[in-house]
Simulated assay, not measured.
Amino acid sequence: MYWELYLFFLGISFVYAAVGFGGGSSYLALLAIYGMPYLELRLTVLVCNVIVVTGSVFVHLRVGQLNWRRTLPLVAASVPMAYLGAVVKISQHAFFCILGISLLAAAVLLWMEKKTEPDDHDVPEKKPAVKSAIWGSGIGFLSGMVGIGGGIFLSPVLNLARWDTAKKIAATASLFILVNSIVGIAGQWKQSLENVDVVRMSSLCMMTLIGGQMGANLAIGWEPLVIKRVTAILVLIAGVNVLAKNVPFIWS
């Protein structure tokens, strides 16, 4: 086990907590680069997601930023699909190929986000629940299969679609990450638990707990777009790295 991983997890959770994400994509990228077994990797990342994002969800609930009428169809549709994605058995090679492609897609989506003021979206009175359900089910399935909460995909998609105000999108993404991470854990628990180094996973989770609490309380004034752009670059590099190791023709 590389000791610097603990510092990386501390820093990642600190930064992601500032913008309401769990950090799953970056945890995944790091652990993939360091060669952690993929079954342990997915379960570790999902538990870390839950630890980091739970505080954000409580904050959003307390200040009333969740638009339940728009959020419920999206989150509800994601639940069965996230579980289905989690229980699907795929080979380690296929997993890392899907992960690499997902990271590249996430990097592009994050980079495409534009700076918005908290309430500058011209939000229509009604949003089709069917469209939200389709987004939720698709991102939920991918999240369950790869082992992330899905916020890194959902937030850019909703912002680009002008789905709601920036604050309410952040609140929705936080709830989406929490619910899908819990569902993913439920789906992967049996097949992953016997392959997990409990001490290692617990230590990494402790780092995310510390970093997440620090980020939620100290990084409120940070510019979210800057953090997302930096994250996009890091995720892009990680995605290329993962694919380079698992798809040989990239370098041929």
Rank of each mutant, 00 (worst) to 15 (best):
M112H: 00
V199K: 12
I152K: 02
S137N: 05
V146Y: 04
R69M: 13
I182S: 00
R200I: 02
G151E: 05
V179I: 14
P128D: 10
V79P: 07
K168L: 00
K127R: 14
P128S: 14
K131E: 15
L104P: 06
R70Q: 09
I148P: 00
L84G: 14
Q191E: 15
A77P: 11
M145G: 04
H93Y: 03
F96Y: 13
L103G: 01
I152P: 03
A133Y: 10
L142E: 04
S181E: 02
V179S: 15
G138A: 13
H93K: 11
L109P: 03
V108W: 00
I139N: 08
V88P: 00
M145L: 15
P80F: 11
K167H: 14
L72Y: 09
R69A: 13
A166I: 12
A129P: 02
L84Q: 11
V183S: 11
A133K: 10
A129N: 09
L99Q: 04
G136Q: 01
M81I: 05
C97P: 01
I152G: 00
V198I: 14
V79K: 13
A107N: 05
S192D: 14
K167M: 06
S102L: 13
L110M: 14
S132N: 07
V183E: 13
D164I: 06
N159T: 07
L103A: 07
V196I: 10
L74D: 12
L74R: 07
I185T: 09
S192R: 08
L99R: 07
L178C: 02
N159H: 11
V179A: 09
V183D: 10
K115Q: 01
G138S: 13
V196L: 11
L178M: 10
L72P: 07
P80C: 08
D119T: 13
A186K: 01
